[in-house]
Design a protein around this nucleic acid. Structure first.
Lengths: 156, 156
DNA sequence: TGTGCAGTTGCAACTGCTTACAGGAGCAAG
DNA sequence: CTTGCTCCTGTAAGCAGTTGCAACTGCACA
């Protein structure tokens, strides 16, 4: 039995129900293998569940998030994005200029966790982070632009 | 001349204007010394600028953010919060249970920056981060609760 | 002094997220 | 089978953030 079904069964035994909508949302976000917005999930399930509504998807995603199956991230886009985690926590690196994305290993934050635990006694919950920066290509591009336009502003 | 006025003058020389509203917003957020929402700023300036509107505050905060004077953070509350940075970047540690907050030194992320730079060639822009966890007091509390209620669910 | 231009403001409208509430569905006890 | 309870869903409404647009302001230049 797969990991997410094991967790689902555990939750069922605790009184939570495995409704068709709930399982469908989990299957979609697991099958996608990438970040999805609420609207993406609605579109994917429009055929099989025409009456599925935004609040239902929203609440189920919160539920799956609390169960540790799904992570919610703000990657700088215009809407929140959700991603299936499973057993492999990870983080993201996003270019502020072109939006290019990389996946980072979870061990990256081990020193930070250590520090928070030792210094403040906190139990860290840094499961899914997004780091921002400028990718090499955009650095080149910005440098070239700067040579042409010395008065380029730093603010919009 | 203070740091923020120096930056303001620089921006003025680049064609951006130092309107009364803009300076008032900067003064308020600088004087507060803590996080503020858009509505907080509007309330503070209600007497001196009765016609000040949400979009104006919003756009000016984006402007100040791009200028590096103000940081925008989602600390898990119900609205975005803005804070004056000045010359001392820092980060935050927030307890997911009670909301207790700590301020973390910027050097905490130096290893992460190093990794992103060396491995991906990225120029990191991690000026203002929020880490979440469970504070010692709430860990005690959760442990006590668990002893009383063995069937306590992990999901809402 | 008059004209043009770019930046800024406030109103209005829009979007996406979130919550409130009433109805429906499944499960357990009687 | 009936009753009662809890969970779940969908409709509707609310909220903060965001964008479009017309009017205004200050500066540069003729």
């Amino acid at each position: 039995m797969s990991h997410h079904m094991k967790v689902a069964r555990q939750l069922q035994e605790q009184g939570y129900r495995l409704t068709p909508q709930r399982l469908a949302i989990l299957e979609v976000i697991k099958g996608a293998g990438c970040h999805m917005s609420i609207q993406d999930i609605l579109d994917k399930l429009a055929d099989s569940y025409p009456t599925l509504s935004v609040p239902t998807v929203y609440r189920n995603l919160q539920w799956l998030k609390a169960a540790g199956l799904v992570a919610e991230t703000d990657l700088g886009g215009e809407c929140h994005e959700y991603e299936y985690i499973g057993e492999e926590p990870h983080h993201h690196l996003v270019c502020l200029e072109c939006g290019e994305r990389h996946t980072l290993p979870d061990s990256l934050l081990d020193p930070v966790r250590e520090y928070l635990r030792e210094t403040y006694g906190y139990l860290p919950r840094a499961e899914h982070f997004a780091f921002f920066g400028i990718c090499p290509a955009c650095q080149e591009h910005a440098h070239a632009e700067h040579s042409h336009d010395e008065h380029h502003a730093d603010a919009p």
